[in-house]
Amino acid sequence: MSLLTVRGLTASYGPSQALFGVDLAINEGEVLALMGRNGMGKSTTIKVICGMLAASDGVLEFAGSDLRRLKSHQIARLGIGLVPEGRRCFAPLTVEENLTAAARPGDWDFAKVAQLFPRLAERRTQKAASLSGGEQQMLAIGRALMTNPRLLILDEATEGLAPVVRQEIWAAIAQLKSQTGMSILVVDKTLKELAQIADHAVILNRGQSVWTGRMDALTPDLTDQYLGV
């Protein structure tokens, strides 16, 4: 049984329908890439999974619980950690305070996050607002890890970052996969890095899943058709 099952998911922003039938499934320890051009429904799908936008129809289950009946914070408590698009740290709080505010019982604590991102340990007492974009992204990932999730969702985690920092983030995600066996749902536009880390992929086009398969089965034709600019 999948850890997360999404089937026939539809959702709307007021009168505007954004999702027309999204299907995806993630198993324990698996990394799934959710791909598609801008505006195809990737972030909306994540918003619905995390309870920030109500689903109109479809199946949405996590570890046997129906997520459609739950509020955002209840979904997070079930074990879904979100790294939102645009980082969004608690700007006036320090690095340590950001992590402490989110902490939930489990394996992940400040020391473990600092091991994954040593730069956060160096910036421990620094306000989040004064961090660089890359450091803020590390903090956003660390904050999500402090909730001790079973599924980590990364929404455009490397967007707008310098190539060197992007590599650092990807290395950390790879480390998470190999060392913790955490399930990860990752939304990103960088196909090369996704190909190295993801086991499976789902392509969204106009709010619908149009392709699902193993990452290594993704052909140039498919990428041209659905992911090319």
């Binding site: 995390c50 309870g51 920030m52 509020k71 955002s72 914070h73 209840q74 997070a76 408590r77 950690g81 979100l82 939102p84 969004r88 608690f90 700007a91 006036p92 709080l93 305070e97 950001n98 402490t100 505010a101 989110a102 902490a103 939930r104 904050r143 999500a144 402090m146 909730t147």
Partner: peptide
């Protein structure tokens, strides 16, 4: 305390706090 920090975080953004499992 963790409670005080979470409260302070909720003052800044309800949505962000909810995504870490806290009810504002």
């Amino acid at each position: 305390s963790a409670f005080g920090l979470a409260l302070s975080a909720a003052r800044q953004s309800e949505e962000r706090v909810e995504t870490v499992g806290l009810a504002p």
